[in-house]
Design a protein around this nucleic acid. Structure first.
Lengths: 345, 345
DNA sequence: TTTAGCACTCCAAATGGGGGAGTGCTAATG
DNA sequence: CATTAGCACTCCCCCATTTGGAGTGCTAAA
């Protein structure tokens, strides 16, 4: 039995194995570590240390006489040791075009994550249900169709074509918009939804505002997940196994699981790393997620991050995700403030 | 030398080989044909016929003693022979939810194509440049940002957030909308673009309408391509070769090539089938495209269809694409007519 | 003209060694 | 006493070889 301390030497050797494995994706032998990393130790010593590390649960051998491969525990150690007190790298900030739509911002941020990491980037949009509606504008189209423009306090903007029955006379649209804004403005979508659901209990005359609200709320469903660079996964050498890859791609494309995982796991502020089996979903257990919440002011809005093989350069990726989250927050805060200085129609 | 006729027997054998190959994706031997297809012929006879078909260019052997595989020419024959005079199958029409946005219609149709065919569905949206603008509505947001709602005569609807400098007083927005509509309504986006470009030659006072038009026109760029079921490609047994698959997936994801291919090749009305090497792009030469234009009235609007391996049940796929195109046309026509009975604000 | 028979071809999967990378252990060394 | 050189051993990976089978083309018979 080995005493269970992680001495300095063991730490160094472990780090060397991690580095090399992250580079090469292949089992790391004692000779390679001795040559490539100037620890001043002979292969034999390193072998002994590696045996200790194996017993401590940080390394495994794919088979009796192969090199060592890091376990989830090793990655966890690596990540935990680098998370506190890390100086900010000066990363070139992504070339965002000065668009104003939040939707395209999300898409661009996701793109940025995937390009910078060469992995798959993800941005989970804020949940609409807790967002506060600011105002509603209606615009006449033709017949009994109107375009509803919904503006939220966080600067979000959604449009939806509604069917109204009976048709609202074009002259009254403006008035009707004001009516909707008065009734629903300043409330969260959730509370509006509850209000609509309770509507059955109020046996008044049929209320057209209620009907419109119902139609608008249909948009509020799932939180939108922006993914990009899914195919970067294909470049990972570990995917000689085509079946596992298919499963993963399908999971990513379906998005549902990922949304669940993000909302359930990664909702506490700051950067989170979920490594391999720490992850509840089987198709994702060969992968790691690095995520961070992003917020405007003190309110957590959504989650963004990166998915990739367990073997990833966590230091860089963690920095990337953290900085991107900060950036996103700044951007949204900027938007938010601009939005507050609102102008009445 | 074999006389170059396609006798009835040869036709039957060819059809049998096609059928079997489409089912199994493996070379077809004479014994299998004899057993599985009741042609009343012995394997030996079928071997002779197959040799003839090979000389005529309809079949090949992957190697000397394997079964036969259909060539592009065989598929071409198959497709050409089934295109004329085909009775309409009664396909369950897809369960479209009664949405009114054209964008989601496109996405849904593409989805329908991919689900029904178990291949990749595509819908190419109409080119905006030749579309006629109907009217523009501006809606105040905050500060110097306004939401522009652009309605086209074909019932299209786009929104874009614009920055206006100097800010337009909210009271004048309505007037300004009318001004834009008067100036640009009834013209194609292309002609508006030309007008804007010629603006430099008119050395008048700086024109705010012009600036806004420029911003709106930024949307007019590429035609939108809706793809779905890309991953269905993964289920094709021919993709043991992982590299070819990656290339294909990348091509699909990038979309550009596909847009080119569709606009250049498939623009003549009706169903078109592009088989294997008939296709100019290398990454797509192991695939076939079945496409059809869709139109409202007599104007061709866009293109939709399916991409899959050459080995596909062309009869079913061709029917599917044709019927979907018809359906799309009806839908758009309906929308169009509704839109014509327009209501002034 | 069709078909049975047969020799032949060629792939695909199974088999069977080397070669090599890596380990664990032991004994020697500072 | 920790470290290291040396060595025997293990096990995978890669290669060449073998083998079985599916399929063909040809020939001769029906």
């Amino acid at each position: 039995m080995v005493e269970p301390e992680l001495t300095e030497r063991r730490r160094q050797v472990l780090q060397a194995v991690l580095d090399d494995y992250i580079r090469t994706a292949g089992p790391v032998g004692s000779r390679v570590v001795a040559k490539r990393y100037p620890l001043g130790l002979s292969p034999a010593t390193i072998r002994n240390t590696m045996a200790d590390l194996e017993e401590l649960g940080y390394l495994t051998q794919p088979h009796t006489s192969a090199g060592r491969v890091p376990t989830d525990q090793a990655y966890r150690f690596y990540v935990d040791s680098l998370l506190p007190g890390r100086e900010r790298g000066h990363r070139a900030s992504p070339p965002f075009s000065p668009r104003t739509e939040v939707e395209s911002l999300m898409a661009e941020i996701s793109q940025h994550l995937s390009v910078s990491s060469r992995l798959t980037g993800m941005v989970l949009a804020p949940p609409l249900r807790t967002t506060i509606l600011e105002r509603v504008e209606l615009l006449a189209l033709e017949g009994n169709r109107v375009l509803a423009v919904v503006v939220t306090e966080s600067g979000w903007l959604t449009t939806k074509v509604l069917s109204v029955e009976p048709a609202i006379p074009p002259g009254e649209l403006r008035e009707f918009s004001r009516l909707l804004t008065d009734r629903f403005g300043g409330r969260t979508f959730e509370s509006i939804q509850q209000w609509v659901e309770r509507a059955g209990e109020r046996p008044q005359d049929p209320d057209q505002a209620e009907d419109l609200a119902r139609q608008v709320l249909a948009v509020v469903g799932e939180r939108n997940l922006y993914l990009s660079g899914i195919l970067n996964i294909l470049d990972q050498p570990e995917f000689s196994d085509i079946q596992a890859m298919k499963d993963l791609l399908r999971t990513l494309e379906a998005k549902g699981r990922l949304v669940n995982l993000l909302t359930l796991h990664a909702d506490s502020p700051g950067v989170q790393v979920l490594i391999g089996r720490e992850n509840p979903y089987e198709e994702l257990q060969d992968f790691s997620l690095v995520t961070s919440t992003y917020s405007a002011g003190n309110q957590v809005l959504g989650i963004l991050g990166v998915v990739g093989p367990r073997r990833m350069p966590y230091d860089q990726i963690v920095s990337l995700v953290e900085e991107t989250a900060t950036l996103m927050g700044q951007w949204l805060r900027g938007l938010n403030e601009a939005e507050r200085s609102r102008v009445r129609v």
